[in-house]
Design a binder for these strands. Sequence first.
DNA 1: TTTAATTATTAATTTTATCTATTGAACTTT
DNA 2: AAAGTTCAATAGATAAAATTAATAATTAAA
Lengths: 306, 306
Amino acid sequence: MNLQQLEYIVALDLHRNHVKAAEHCHVTQPTLSMMVKKLEDELEVKIFDRTQPLKPTLAGEMVIARARQILQEVKNMREIVKAEKETLDGEYRLGVIPTLAPYLLPRFLNDFLEKHPSISFSVVELQTNDIIKQLKMNRLDIGILVTPLDDKEIREVPVYYEPILVYTSDNLKYFHQEKVDAKSLTQENLLLLEEGHCFRGQVVNICSTKGRKVHHQLNYQSGSFETLKGMVDNNYGYTLIPEMAVNLKNKHVKRFVSPEPVREVSLAVHQGFVKEALIVKLREAILKSIPAHFKKNEKYIRVKWH
Amino acid sequence: MNLQQLEYIVALDLHRNHVKAAEHCHVTQPTLSMMVKKLEDELEVKIFDRTQPLKPTLAGEMVIARARQILQEVKNMREIVKAEKETLDGEYRLGVIPTLAPYLLPRFLNDFLEKHPSISFSVVELQTNDIIKQLKMNRLDIGILVTPLDDKEIREVPVYYEPILVYTSDNLKYFHQEKVDAKSLTQENLLLLEEGHCFRGQVVNICSTKGRKVHHQLNYQSGSFETLKGMVDNNYGYTLIPEMAVNLKNKHVKRFVSPEPVREVSLAVHQGFVKEALIVKLREAILKSIPAHFKKNEKYIRVKWH
DNA sequence: TTTAATTATTAATTTTATCTATTGAACTTT
DNA sequence: AAAGTTCAATAGATAAAATTAATAATTAAA
């Protein structure tokens, strides 16, 4: 038995004529005739009485009724899958890393929720590894974080590329350069975020003065860019900072020489996440809210963080 | 999508292992893997998360649940058909021709109904053509009559072959013969059932003295063998009569010389009739109730009646 | 790092559905 | 009755598909 045979008998019951039923199913009359007969052979029951006018047998009536129901359920299955992918309605749990949340969320979240009143978000600020864990445990639906993650269970949807800048005190050489060369960076005087932030990993990757261990006069690690900026503003050291976290008119801010290091900001979902439309809409909303030059660009170098 | 793919994902959900699921479905592992993937491609949704341990995705859970239901309904369909064929329970409308009813029914009907308390019959005595009509209109379920009918809508299930005998008055030559030769029969002195009985047709076929029209001194047509026998017993003419309608010890009864003419007694149902078991059981009950020599025999000649 | 277990890939094979063309059977119309 | 018409069945050829065996690539476990 197969689903086509069921379609054939339903069509044949509808049209009571092999030729018309075959047309209905977009096959030729012999195909339909043979498949109907094959089903009858398998069930060992005549479904149709071939004398004119053609009509189902008593047993056939029952078989056809079941066939209708089965086909309906197949249809339902397809529609459920489709709806699950297309519909946006629902409550979603969003995890955002701390180095993105305060700068990115205000840019698009209100607009987005106003535009889609049937959607609601509950947002939590978590570090990357925690977001990944929670996504896998299905305690989060979507993450906004920095990729690549290299985790097969997690699907990454890149959204934008945010340049990483130097934020330097005015008593360092960088302050007097128009653009900074990554190779010239030293670990000396470098202020870092505390352990756990992926951005810290990126900074370390950019400033890797391989092997050469440096003793710092001050080892200060902060949980936020704002603290680090305050340190720098008060005449100590430099730090790296993503573009959205600073005011570009600030004289302490220096761009890197091309190719600029960037962080790839992505949406992350579990592989089983099916609401494709939500991902697409969310991505569009974010893209519309950020500076135009954040889009993918071959002059950028994506910096890994692990 | 096809039913096997649904079976594959249900088995895979059950075993959470491609190899075991494949064994369960009696196919090889690559077959199952590929078919599952094919279904995923068609639905455009990942059904399983292949990281270990293997488990369904959220959307997959829904798809699998539907698949289970669909397969269950397919099973139901098969079982309904089977039950419809196998189950005997029910009320059946039986049509029996008048030349069989009084001799055959008493032989098996009571026993049969006692043996199958869940079956009930309502019996009506009708001539062949009426039984056929009623079967076609679904106003009768089963007929017991003489075949062949040559009607495609009606399915004939031959049961037994009943010899046709001569019943002669003692003033005719036949009375003095041990066995009668059909070729020696004349239409003269022949007593017939009235028009409409199929047995009349058989008698005419046996006694066809082609073309030679005979004027009868008496043209007497009766509705029952009992009346005809009474006529013969009172010294007038002869008639033909089925074996079950006479006492073989009666000296007026003569067998034909071999090959004996017989009437084929059959069950008749509409082609759509599905209760196969009922037909089988009914046939067995009848066969057990009749003389052993009524079974099919190459020494018999089946006499048509139309 | 090996080993074992699990899933994916490939190429060949078999099975199946499907098509075209034709035949056969049952009605209609002439 | 003969010819035409409609309808379903049959046969042979073709294309599509599922399936397999063999093997590779992963992943987990020891």
